[in-house]
C-alpha cells in the first residue's frame, strides 16, 4: 500500500517540489502588538471575518414554515370545531330552555311536597320526614341545555354562600386546584309565583279527590 503512495509521490515529485518552494507568507509586523493589545484590553470580540452576516434565506425559511402551518391549520380545521362554545353562540336558546326546565322542576317540587304531606298524615306523624333526593335514574333535561341539572349548581344559593343540601348532595360543588371538577355550569332558579302555586295545588287536589273517588267506587263494586 505504501509503495503505491510512494510511486504516486514520485510521479508528482516536481509538483511537490514546487509546492514546497512556494514563497512563505509571513505575519504582518504589528501582528504580535495587535494581539497583545487585544488581550490586554480584553477585546475578544469576533473579528469581521468571524461575524455572522444577516442571511435572508435563514430568516425566511423558519417564518415561511410557521405561516404555512398556520394557514393549513385554519384551512383543514373541521367547521364544527370552530363554533365549539355553545354559550357564546346560543345564549337566548339556553335561557329559554332553562326557564322551561325550571317550570318543570317546580311542578315536581309541588308534587313531592303534597305527597309528603299526605304521607305524614297517614303515618300519624311517627315517621321522620326524609329529605327528598333527586332520583339519579330519572331523566334529566341534559339534551335541552348544554349542562345537566344533576351536575350543576344553583347560582343564587352559591352566591349567597348558602350552598344547600341539594347542591352538595349532587356533588356540584365548585372545585379549585388540580382535582377535576364535576361542575358543569350554573342554572337559573325562578322564585315560584304564588298564583301559579295555588292553581297547581288546586289542580293536584282535584286530581287526588278524583282518584280517591274512583278508588272508593272500585271498592264498592268489589263488595258482594
Amino acid at each position: 500500500m505504501n509503495n503505491i503512495y510512494n510511486e504516486k509521490e514520485m510521479k508528482n515529485s516536481e509538483l511537490i517540489k514546487d509546492l514546497k518552494n512556494l514563497p512563505k507568507i509571513q505575519a504582518p509586523e504589528n501582528f504580535e502588538y495587535n494581539l497583545m493589545t487585544r488581550i490586554e484590553n480584553r477585546n475578544f470580540e469576533k473579528t469581521e471575518a468571524e461575524k455572522t452576516n444577516f442571511n435572508w434565506a435563514k430568516f425566511f425559511a423558519p417564518s415561511a414554515v410557521v405561516v404555512t402551518v398556520v394557514i393549513l391549520f385554519f384551512l383543514l380545521m373541521p367547521q364544527s370545531r370552530q363554533n365549539d362554545n355553545k354559550f357564546a353562540s346560543n345564549d337566548k336558546n339556553i335561557e329559554s330552555q332553562a326557564l322551561v326546565d325550571n317550570s318543570a322542576a317546580l311542578k315536581n317540587e309541588i308534587l313531592n311536597k303534597s305527597g309528603n304531606e299526605n304521607a305524614n298524615k297517614s303515618a300519624a306523624g311517627t315517621e321522620k320526614r326524609s329529605l327528598e333526593k333527586p332520583n339519579p335514574n330519572s331523566p334529566q333535561p341534559v339534551g335541552r341545555i348544554p349542562f345537566g341539572y344533576s351536575r350543576s349548581v344553583s347560582l343564587d344559593d352559591y352566591i349567597k354562600g348558602a350552598n344547600n343540601q341539594d347542591n352538595l348532595i349532587q356533588g356540584n360543588v365548585v372545585n379549585s386546584g388540580e382535582t377535576p371538577s364535576s361542575f358543569d355550569g350554573f342554572f337559573l332558579v325562578e322564585k315560584p309565583d304564588q298564583n301559579t302555586l295555588k292553581k297547581e295545588r288546586a289542580r293536584i287536589d282535584s286530581l287526588k279527590n278524583a282518584k280517591a273517588k274512583a278508588d272508593s267506587l272500585k271498592r264498592l263494586k268489589k263488595l258482594p
Binding site: I25, Q26, A27, F31, L35, R38, I39, K46, T47, A49
Partner: peptide
C-alpha cells in the same frame, strides 16, 4: 508564520488570513 502560511494557502486572502490567525491565537 506557519499558521499564516497554512491559512493563506487555504483561503487565498491575506487580510482574512491575518484575522483568522489572530482569532486562532485569541
Amino acid at each position: 508564520d506557519p499558521l499564516m502560511n497554512f491559512v493563506y494557502r487555504f483561503v487565498g486572502d491575506k487580510d482574512a488570513c491575518t484575522d483568522i490567525v489572530q482569532e486562532t491565537m485569541i
